[in-house]
Amino acid sequence: MEKIIVGRLLRSNTRACVVGCPPAQQFPAFGSLVSIPLSETEVVYGLIGDIHIDDDGLVRQLATAPSVDEAVIQDNRLNRNVPVEMTVLFVGSKTENRISHLLPARPPLSLDCMYLCSTQELCEFTAGSRFGYLRHILDAQDVPAADLLAAHLAQAGAAQRAQGNSAWFGQAAARIITQLRDDYPRLMPILETLADVENA
C-alpha cells in the first residue's frame, strides 16, 4: 500500500520539527507516530506533540458573524493559505532496518515529506520493552507532556494489544514511574492522565 504524505516539513532542529499540511486534509492525531524519510535507508520517527491552527484577522471577523456558511468554512480550510502546523517531537530513527531511540543524527530538511506510521510500524518502534524514547517526551519543553504521553500510550497500547502484547501499557507506565519517581509533583499528574486513558 502506498504511503500517504500527511505533511511537509516547515522548519526543524535536532529535537523537533514543524510540519505543515492543508487544514482540509485528514491530518494525524495528537500523539501519533510519524516518520520522515531522510534517505532510502534512514528514517526519523517522531510523535505529533502539538497541532497548531493559526487564525488571522479574517477568521477572527468571521467568527463574530451569527452564522458561517459551509462554503465560507470550506473556503477557509481549503483555499486560504494557512496550513495546519504540527510540532513533531523526534523520538528515534531507523537506519538500515535498525531502530534506535536516540535523536536523529541530522534533522530532516525543508519540505521533506512526513508519513503517518502504520500499526505495524508503531508496534515495531515500541517493541521489545524498550522505552528509551519516552525520555524525549518527558524532557520536551512547550508541549503538554502528560497528555502527549497519554495519547501515545493509548495508541501504542491498543496496537500492541492487537498484536497480543497486553502487558505493554503497564510496562510503559512502569518505565515512566521509574524515570519520574523522584519528581512527585510531575509524576502524579502524568499518572492521573494515564488513568484517564485506562478509564477511557
Binding site: 507506565a173 512502569a174 514511574i177 521509574t178 509524576l187 499518572l191 485506562e198
Partner: peptide, 15 residues
Amino acid sequence: QRLPENLAGLLDQQT
C-alpha cells in the same frame, strides 16, 4: 485514592 488499581500498584511497587 488518585489512581486506578493497576497504576497505583505499579506506582507503589516503585515508590
